[in-house]
């Protein structure tokens, strides 16, 4: 069973709650996905329109909440967001994400490492969203992060595992769980991530932007289970030339 910090998860699919057309769709899709960890963002309350009303049903469903620091442009703002979400939700878990560039949303590695070090010292369970950089992932592990979350491709792009060769290195080297986050656009890509040996995947856009997000949530649940089972079973090695699966001698010579 997957364990991050002190929490065990029977599902290796984590889900985001953004981009759904309505809250009820999100709740139904999360339920269908069997995800036990969902991400949320923090925002200043609009006094006129009120809150999103997603918190209570999510808390009632029993999923663990993972607030993120989206919107933070540097370590200082990310730490502030972590403090906010701890008071808000009573959790010391934080998805650390610092991406100042709005076009590609590439995570800032320097600010992320700086914030991770401080938040870990303050007792947070830190899950940093980072580029698929094996050196950075090791550094984040060294400062005490509970997991690392390298990207497959840019957030919300559905491009899949563009970074696959580097994800393999991260998975090989990591002593903490590796959660492939961002860019997974199809269940087959989630399967691939799990076949590589990822500990979990985090999916949002691919489910939220589907015409049938509930069905897609279910598909991702199956995909992640299949990929994990295939990893445990052990993939065969890849060869550049053919290896016969039937005997090639004796038939014509009889």
């Amino acid at each position: 069973m997957l364990k991050i910090a002190d929490t065990e998860f029977s599902s290796r699919l984590f889900t985001g709650t953004g981009k759904f057309s309505q809250a009820s769709d999100m709740l139904a899709a999360v339920s269908a996905s069997q995800s036990q960890l969902v991400t949320l963002a923090v925002k200043r309350l609009d006094l006129k329109t009120g809150s999103d009303n997603i918190l209570q049903p999510l808390q009632g469903s029993g999923v663990k909440l993972l607030p993120n620091t989206a919107g933070a442009r540097n370590a200082k703002e990310a730490i502030f967001a972590a403090h906010l979400s701890r008071e808000m939700l009573g959790t010391n878990w934080i998805k650390l994400e610092i991406h100042p560039d709005p076009k590609y949303l590439m995570p800032d590695p320097i600010e992320t490492l700086a914030a991770a070090r401080i938040l870990c010292e303050q007792g947070y369970v830190v899950l940093p969203y980072v580029h698929a950089d094996p050196v950075l992932c090791r550094r984040l592990e060294e400062v005490g992060c509970a997991a690392v979350m390298p990207l497959g491709s840019p957030i919300g792009s559905n491009q899949g595992l563009v970074t696959e060769p580097f994800l393999k290195i991260i998975i090989e080297q990591s002593n903490v769980p590796v959660v492939i986050d961002a860019g997974i656009g199809a269940p087959s890509q989630a399967t691939r991530a799990m076949e590589l040996g990822a500990d979990a995947v985090l999916v949002n856009t691919a489910i939220a932007s589907s015409a049938d997000s509930v069905a897609m949530g279910r598909c991702f649940a199956q995909a992640v289970e299949t990929g994990r089972a295939a990893y445990l079973a052990g993939l065969g090695s890849v060869s550049k030339h053919a290896n016969n699966t039937s005997p090639l001698t004796g038939f014509l010579n009889g």
């Binding site: 991400t39 949320l40 963002a41 923090v42 925002k43 200043r44 309350l45 906010l84």
Partner: peptide
């Protein structure tokens, strides 16, 4: 005084 709340996010 500022009030913050959760919103949907990835």
């Amino acid at each position: 005084l500022e009030v913050f709340s959760v919103v949907a996010g990835g």
